[in-house]
Amino acid sequence: MRLLLLGLLLVGSCCLSRAGLILENGAPIMWAHATSQPTDLTITEGVLTPDPWHYLHRMSFYRILIAATDPYMTSMGPGDNQSPIWGLPLQLGWMLTSGTVDAVLDPELCPVLAQVQMQSPAGVEGYCTTYDSCKTAHPDVINNWDSFFQGLKDATTSPLPENEKKDAILGLYWRAQMSSTAAHSTCQDKLSSYSGVEKSFAHSWLNAAEYVAAAHFQSSLELASQFMSPLPGRILKEDDSPPNIPDLSAEENHSLYIFSWMQSVDNFLGGTLASMWRRAMCSVTTRENGREMLKQLLFNPEYATSSFLSIVTSMSTSCGS
């Protein structure tokens, strides 16, 4: 899965931009134009040399990855498009429509015979371009993705109930995804080009991901697009004052308010809100409840933030007892 891990690592690095358009004909933006065959990508002297800054190259990574891993995703539930990996191409499409576009390769999951060397465009520095260089630069990231892919294979012979296998797979997925997100430090010098409001949103969005990850959110095509739909439809400007931005919808303003509120409370409490949440997500059942709480918080304006705090405190205490 080395090709796939390289793409996954890179997409976790820079994720500041987004837009309201999430789906195109029921799929991620330009999904129909992405290839499903690794050998359709650029090959130079027998070496696969895709460009991770090329939108369709990267979208192709995700199409290949989803197709390769879908046979191992039966625990995710009936029907198509249940894989949590759908969240990645949806996020990439979200980045494209905002105007800014920025693996472990197990032969049993994705038989790619060519070697892989990612392209690195002129003026772009600080990114690893091969499996070995990424393993050296970001060992935890690569190890966590290795564990995820191995966990997929192990699940096919596991005696656990399907809901527990699903929860275990999602746990491995989010551990890997969050370690990729943590690698965004390579993009810190790019932050100066954004407004202060946009940078605040970026930080609050990353903070919110901690809650989503701990709850083992199933970022299927349907659920991921649902949760991404209220994100702001444009880059935030310096004079924007959420949640009172006139040209954004009520849903967009509400999502900005919620993300900012979560970040502010966590900062005020010295990080203890996020810590309590992680402690509260201690079982399959509490994680199911946690996903419903996040849904209410994001989509139900009548859901009191004070209720969220009290429930999290109670849940974390119960888990610790």
Rank of each mutant, 00 (worst) to 15 (best):
L3Q: 00
L6Y: 13
G7V: 00
L8G: 05
L8H: 08
L9E: 03
C14G: 15
L16P: 07
N25P: 00
M30T: 00
A32S: 08
A32Y: 15
S36D: 14
T42K: 13
E45G: 10
E45C: 06
V47S: 06
V47C: 00
D51Y: 14
W53P: 10
H57V: 13
M59I: 03
M59K: 04
Y62A: 04
I64S: 08
A68D: 11
D70K: 14
P71F: 15
P71L: 08
G77K: 06
G77C: 01
Q82G: 06
P84W: 00
P84Y: 00
I85H: 01
W86G: 01
W86A: 02
L88I: 03
L88R: 07
L90H: 04
Q91W: 07
L92W: 05
G93H: 01
L96T: 05
L96Q: 07
A103E: 10
A103D: 05
V104G: 06
P107G: 11
L109A: 09
C110T: 11
C110N: 12
V112Y: 02
Q115H: 09
Q119L: 05
Q119M: 11
G123H: 02
V124K: 15
T129Q: 09
C134I: 03
C134T: 07
T136R: 13
H138L: 04
H138S: 11
N143V: 09
S147P: 02
T156F: 15
L160Q: 11
E164L: 11
D167T: 03
I169W: 00
G171K: 12
S180Y: 07
S180T: 09
S185R: 13
S185P: 08
T186W: 15
D189M: 09
K190N: 10
K190S: 13
K190C: 14
K190T: 09
S192E: 12
G196P: 12
L206W: 15
E210R: 08
Y211H: 10
H216A: 08
Q218A: 03
S220Y: 03
S220V: 02
S220R: 06
S220L: 00
L223C: 11
A224S: 08
F227R: 12
R234Q: 13
R234A: 00
L236F: 11
I245K: 07
D247K: 12
L248C: 01
N253V: 04
S255L: 11
Y257F: 15
Y257H: 15
S264H: 07
L269E: 05
A274L: 11
A274W: 02
A274F: 08
C282D: 09
C282H: 08
G290Q: 07
R291H: 09
E292M: 04
L294G: 06
L294A: 05
P301M: 12
A304S: 12
T305Y: 15
F308N: 10
V312W: 09
T313V: 09
T313M: 04
S314M: 14
S314G: 14
S316L: 11
C319S: 03
C319L: 05
C319M: 03
G320N: 08
